[in-house]
């Protein structure tokens, strides 16, 4: 049995890690060079956040396991990231909306986690919040440009918001793992994050002239519980290619 704290770490770490994977995949594909560099910056920050949390998870697990072992050598069902970050780089609108949803979430999550009773989580949150503040500034700006840009960009953005909306429920789901950590003061009540998230996203969508989708509950087995979209298998096949092919090698 893995401890709740271990799971909590992985939910955070894997979400940043898989999102950074998607951003890494996008390098050299951006609409212009400045944007390529700036997306890569976000991706690098996310790897850094994931790395700190993988290190902590390795410490919790013990027995000589390393951050790389955890990052690279698990079964698909042991990865606990949100579905949202598995979603492919369909186009720049999807990349922007996906990022924006996550940035708003991370902004409020890490702001609250700065006060976590767990000193490592609090320290990671304090360090990450500076980065996330910048990420959010950037993705919000793009939401406005795309939503309120041309007719083409507006439609693409509306479509991406509609398609990705169903994956946002998971961000606020409070299961027993989470609940017990809230009681210990390690984690925070996601209802609070949700309220702030909705308000921020609402305001931005309105300013961007994008309509908020109707809420429809989808039948999903959440990523945070080890259920994944069809996209995930391909991500891991690629990500784990070398460590699977050469299990005895170190890099």
């Amino acid at each position: 049995m893995e401890s709740n704290l271990y799971k909590f770490c992985l939910r955070l770490a894997d979400t940043s890690f898989i999102l950074s994977y998607r951003l890494g995949e996008y390098v050299s594909h951006a609409p212009f060079l400045e944007e390529d560099l700036s997306i890569t910056n976000v991706g690098l920050d996310l790897i850094g956040q994931a790395e700190s949390l993988f290190k902590y998870a390795a410490e919790i697990k013990g027995g000589g396991i390393t951050d790389d072992d955890i990052a690279y050598k698990r079964e698909e069902s042991e990865y606990l990231n949100f579905h949202l970050v598995e979603y492919p780089n369909e186009d720049f609108a999807f990349i922007t909306v996906r990022q924006f949803f996550m940035d708003v979430y991370n902004y409020y999550l890490f702001t609250a986690l700065k006060n976590s009773s767990d000193p490592t989580i609090a320290a990671v949150a304090a360090k990450s919040i500076k980065e996330v503040t910048y990420h959010l500034k950037r993705s919000r700006k793009w939401m406005l440009r795309l939503g309120d840009g041309t007719e083409v960009s507006h439609n693409k953005t509306q479509y991406a918001v509609n398609e990705l909306w169903k994956y946002t429920d998971e961000l606020f789901d409070m299961d027993d793992v989470h609940q017990s950590l809230v009681e210990e003061g390690v984690a925070i009540d996601l209802k609070e994050v949700q309220e702030k998230w909705i308000k921020y996203v609402d305001d931005t969508l309105t300013e961007a002239t994008v309509t908020k989708p109707e809420h429809v509950k989808h039948s999903l087995v959440y990523g945070k519980n080890g259920g994944h979209t069809d996209f995930m298998g391909y991500v891991l096949t690629d990500l784990q290619y070398l460590t699977n092919r050469y299990p005895d090698a170190t890099w």
Partner: peptide
């Protein structure tokens, strides 16, 4: 391809 796929994005930024 990256440049062409980015055309609508650059146009959106200008229009905005």
């Amino acid at each position: 391809a990256a440049h062409d796929n980015g055309q609508w994005v650059r146009e959106a930024a200008i229009a905005y």
